[in-house]
């Protein structure tokens, strides 16, 4: 007890790591160099720390790393295919959906989960899903547009 070895499956890679029970998922992924995941409110409110755990968006700031044992974890670094950006990343750039960029990794990862669940979302669905991701710069409109654009793009892609 106290510490244990887990089978970590982050962004398609696999490794075994020894962690203490109280280690938070954000501490673990950032310690692996995956620093796209940001810590902000530290209280499940802002979404800057969003990662996918077994396909579901979670606040890595308030999730124990042991929960990731043998479950796939996707962080923002897992979206691009080599140098080819994910359609969501492209759409965020096209639509100027970020300014300082601090909320962006969480926004995009949360939007990824949205599009996995609802490939053809309407505006209300996007707003409802994303309302737990806070942005202090953009005013949200361009973010909603970017998510809708990416959805269309992904449906069109072969």
């Amino acid at each position: 007890m106290g510490s244990r070895e887990i089978h970590l499956r982050v962004n398609g890679g696999e490794r075994r790591v020894v962690i203490e029970d109280q280690t938070l998922l954000i501490e673990l992924v950032r310690s692996l160099g995956l620093v796209g995941t940001k810590l902000s409110c530290d209280s499940q409110v802002c979404g800057a720390c969003t990662v996918l755990l077994d396909g579901r968006p979670v606040s890595s700031c308030t999730t124990l790393a042991i929960e990731a044992d043998d479950k796939p974890v996707v962080t923002i670094e897992g979206l691009a295919d080599g140098a080819k950006l994910h359609p969501l990343q492209e759409a965020f750039i096209e639509r100027f959906a970020f300014q300082c960029g601090y909320c962006t990794p969480g926004m995009i990862v949360s939007a990824k989960a949205l599009l996995d669940a609802y490939p053809e979302p309407d505006v209300a669905t996007v707003r409802h899903w994303m309302d737990g991701n806070i942005c202090r710069c953009t005013g949200y409109q361009t973010i909603v547009e970017a998510v809708l654009d990416a959805a269309e793009q992904m449906r069109g892609a072969p």
Partner: peptide, 12 residues
């Protein structure tokens, strides 16, 4: 239930 908290809190 769909309107409790935010999507991450609902997921966990």
């Amino acid at each position: 239930e769909a309107n409790v908290a935010n999507v991450r809190v609902r997921a966990a």
